[in-house]
């Protein structure tokens, strides 16, 4: 469960990139975080994962505050960044082992998990190679595998489909559903509204740093009094 409480962040004075955001994502839920470019999606995710420090508010991951108990909180989620640039000169397998060491995963468990995920994402054949020789899609797969190495209760993904081929995108979507069915929290941001419509139990729409809608797509349709697609509803809402 992820709880966001009055989260705010400014990069320049008097202009808030994220303005007093508060919402909760429950266990077993797939939550889509939507918004136009520059709305504050990545800033919010960066604050949720500890990359940025909020000016105000806090994020609780299964009850652990990212501000006060960062190590505890970080142990409870896996994160896929939007930028797949890993500049360290490591081999794929070295990167995954590094993550496993940080999460203190024993030898047998890490071997089982890594091999299962490598098979799923078809990266096994390239895992001995250096990451800087990977294509964008391969790097994205590696980041996804890395985010699941600790079998997190909460899975946070920032634009995860970008760079993946249709087959892998499908596998990822299936995996997201599988994780939600296991009772885990899946939080992801996307620009592809079809995917959000297809996958999400609830969506949150952010514009100019403020949450303008949170709820299911049916709730959004009821609110707008029309049976349009998510795309149509989104465009209308953001336009206002």
């Amino acid at each position: 469960m992820i709880k966001i409480e009055n989260l705010s962040k400014s990069y320049v004075r008097e202009k808030k990139a994220v303005d007093g955001l508060s919402f909760e994502i429950n266990d077993g839920e797939i939550f889509g975080f939507l918004g136009p470019n520059g709305a504050g999606k990545t800033t919010t995710i960066k604050m949720m994962t500890g990359i940025l420090n909020p000016d105000e508010g806090d994020v609780f991951i299964d009850g652990s505050s990212i501000k006060r108990e960062p190590i505890d909180a970080k142990n409870k989620f896996g994160y896929v960044p939007d930028n797949s640039d890993i500049i360290w000169r490591l081999k794929g397998i070295e990167y995954l082992n590094f993550l496993a060491d940080i999460y203190k995963i024993d030898n047998k468990t890490r071997k089982d998990r890594i091999e299962k995920l490598l098979d799923l994402f078809e990266l096994k054949d390239a895992i001995y190679s250096y990451i800087n020789t990977y294509s964008r899609g391969m790097k994205q797969k590696l980041l996804i595998i890395g985010s699941l190495i600790n079998e997190p209760q909460n899975w946070i993904l920032d634009e995860p489909i970008v760079g993946l081929d249709p087959l892998m995108a499908h596998s990822l979507k299936e995996l997201m559903k599988e994780k939600a069915n296991e009772g885990k929290t899946v939080f992801f941001s996307t620009h592809i509204l079809e995917i959000a419509q297809q996958l999400c139990d609830r969506v949150g729409i952010i514009n100019k740093g403020k949450l303008i809608f949170i709820g299911s797509i049916t709730e959004l349709q009821t609110l707008r009094n029309q049976k349009g697609t998510l795309e149509e509803l989104f465009l209308e809402l953001v336009d206002e």
Binding site: K46, T49, G50, I51, P70, I71, D72, K74, N75, F77, Y79, P81, N83, D85, I86, I87, W88, L99, I102, Y103
Partner: peptide, 10 residues
């Protein structure tokens, strides 16, 4: 830029 990855790890 990879420092951001480190910051999300425990």
């Amino acid at each position: 830029k990879s420092f951001s990855i480190l910051k999300t790890l425990p």
